[in-house]
Nucleic acid binder design. Sequence first.
DNA 1: AAGAAAAAAGTGAACGTTCACATTTTTGCT
DNA 2: AGCAAAAATGTGAACGTTCACTTTTTTCTT
Lengths: 355, 355
Amino acid sequence: MAKKANVTIEDVAREVGVSRQTVSRVINKGPNVKPAVREKVEQAIARLGYVPNLSARRMGGGRSYLILAVNDRQRTLENWQAGRGNDWVDQMLYGGMTECEKQGYHLMFELIDTEPEKAPVELSHSIAALRPDGIILTPPHSDNEALAAMLAEKGIPCARIGRRGGEDYIDVYMDEGAAAADAARHLLALGHRKLALIAGSPEYGNSQKRAEGFLSALEQAQCGPGLVAKANFQFDRAAELLEEMLTGPNPPTGVIADNDEMAFAALHVADKLGLRIPDDLSVISFEDTPGVRFSVPPLTAIRQPTAEMIGKACNELIAAAGGQPAKGSFILPYRMVERATTGPLAPRLSQASGS
Amino acid sequence: MAKKANVTIEDVAREVGVSRQTVSRVINKGPNVKPAVREKVEQAIARLGYVPNLSARRMGGGRSYLILAVNDRQRTLENWQAGRGNDWVDQMLYGGMTECEKQGYHLMFELIDTEPEKAPVELSHSIAALRPDGIILTPPHSDNEALAAMLAEKGIPCARIGRRGGEDYIDVYMDEGAAAADAARHLLALGHRKLALIAGSPEYGNSQKRAEGFLSALEQAQCGPGLVAKANFQFDRAAELLEEMLTGPNPPTGVIADNDEMAFAALHVADKLGLRIPDDLSVISFEDTPGVRFSVPPLTAIRQPTAEMIGKACNELIAAAGGQPAKGSFILPYRMVERATTGPLAPRLSQASGS
DNA sequence: AAGAAAAAAGTGAACGTTCACATTTTTGCT
DNA sequence: AGCAAAAATGTGAACGTTCACTTTTTTCTT
C-alpha cells in the first residue's frame, strides 16, 4: 500500500552486499570490478528494476546524458506558423533520437534567437539550467563563432552542422556545392543546355555554395552562363521569376530549385504555360520533404542527409562526453532521388498543339 | 583566467544579504517575501545572470520542469524510415515547445513500444531516469489504461490526447466524428450524392470514429449508404480501391480520405481515369500536412488541432505540477481548409471528350 | 502598549549520484 | 614466502536545490 519509494543505487548495493561506488562503477562501465561482482550487480539491477536518476548523476558531477539541439527560433517559428512545418526538425529528431536512444542519451530541442548577439545569452541560460553534455548547432548558428567560442570556454563539446573544418569543433556537413554541380551535370547529361537555379536567400550559406557549384559545373561543361534567380525560398516569388524566364527569350529547359516549395512553383508554372514535364522542362529540388513523392509528377530531388548528420553529431558528442577530443570534420553523402520530373529533353514533334 | 564557477542560489543570497531560502522563494514565486526584498533579489538574479540548475531543483524535491511527450515507437520509426516523416511529431513540437517555453518548462520526446504490455515498463524506466512533472500520452498509448493507471499510481499527472472523459486524467481531444460528418455534409451541400470514405486502419481509433460520423451524416441526409473502404493509410492500397470504385457501377463523386497520402491517391487515380477535380470528383483529406498546399490541385483538408492539443496538454500538466487537480476534458476545434479539390458537381456538357 | 497572531526570514537535512581519495585484497615477481 | 605493485573495493564530501521546521520581525487587536 505504502507507495514504494524509488529504487536507488544504495538499494542495489545492499542487495548485492557491495558499496554504492561499486554499483556506480558497474553502471558506468568503469574498470576495477571483478567480473563475478559485475555480473551479480547487473542481475540485481535487473531484478530490482533500478534505473539511475539523471538529476542525481548530474549533481554528483557526472554526465547529464543530455544533448541539446539548437535551432533558429525565428525561422522555425515562422515555418510552423505559416503551416510550412519543419521537416528539417522532424529529420533531426529522427537521426538524433535514434542515435541517442542507443547510447542511453536524451535529446532536447532548443530554439534560440536569430540575432547573433542574443544567441549566446539565450543559450547560456539553457546550459545553466540543463547542463547538457553536448550541443548541436544548426544553421545559421553554426556560423556564429562567438557562440561556439562560448561553448568551448565552458568546456561543452559542440557539433556544428553544415560546417567543414573540424579543427576546433566537431563539424558535420554535406558538400552542397558538389550536390548542385551533380544536379546540373545530371540535367546536362539528359541533353539540357540552358539551365536555371532558383536560389533561396543569400544569407543562407547553403544557397551560396549551391550557386557556386551550379555555376562551375556549367562552366566546366561550357554551357554557361547559367541563370541564377533568388526567390527567397518562396513559392510566389519563384513562380513569378520562373514565368518570366520561361516566357522570355532562350528559356531554360532545366531548373534546379533550392527547396521543394520553389520546385513546386516550377511545376505550377509549367502547367500554366502548357509545358510538359519532363519532356519540355526538367526540375530538380533540394530538400525532398515527404509531400514531394506525391506531387504530379513526383519530384526528383537531392536529399540532404539531415538525420544522418544529426546522428553523427550525437555520436561524436557522446564520444566527447566520454573523453574523446571534441573535434573532427565529417562529410556525409547526399543522394539524388530520381523521380519523374527529370528526363531527356524531348521537344514536341510538331509545334502545333494537338490532341 | 580561472574558469568562473556557475552562479548558484547562494551567490545570489550573499549578494543581496539574505538566505538561500528567500531567494528560492523569489524564484518559485512563493509567498512571504517582502516586496522590497523580492525586488532586490530579482535584480541580483538579473545582474549575476543566475539561472537555477534543474537537476538540483529536482534533487531538492522540487519540480523537474520537464514534460515527456510519448509517441508510439513502431509507427513513428516506420514513418521516418519510409520517408513519410512525422508531421504529427513536428506539430507536437510546435505546440509543446511554444507553451513550455512560456512557462519555463522543457519538452522531451520519448518513443515507447506499441506492445501494450511493454509500454509501461519502458515508460517507467524513462520516468525513473528523468522524473518528468507530467506526461503526454498520444494514440495508441492514450487508450492504454494500464499505462495511465501506472502514472496515476506514481503520482505523475498525465494528459491523454484523443480521449474524452477527463474524470481521472487530463483528456484533450477533437471531435473526429463531427469532423467527418462535417466533411460529408460539405460534399452533400455541393451537390454530391454518392460519397466514399477511404479509411485508415481499424485499430486506429480515429478511423473508427470518423467512419461513424461519416455514415451517420449520410443517413441523416438520406443519402446512404456511403462506401467505406479500408486502405490502411497507404497510397497504393487506396489507389487500388479507388480505381475499383470509380470504374464500377454508381461511382462516388465525393471522396473523404483518412490521411493526405490516400487523398493524393485519389488525385492520382482521377488523373489516370480522366476525371476532372473538382468538377467530376471532390476530395477532402484528414491531415493537412505541409505538402498538401502544393498538390495539383491543392487539397481541401480537415486540419487537426495537433499543436493546440499538445499546447493545451502542456498547459494543464504544468498547472497540475503547480497543485491543480490533474483532470478535465478539453475539446478543441478542428478546421476545414478549403482549397481546390472540392467544388460543386459539374458534369461535362457532352460525354465525348474534346479539345 | 502589551500580547497574540501573522508574515517574513533563516537553518539543518535530504535528495541520489560521482569524485577524490583511503583502504583492502589480489597478483606477480624473486 | 615475502614484498611490491596493481587491482578491487569502500568512505566521506560535494553538487545546488527544496522541504520541513524554527526563529525573528511585523502587524493587528484591544
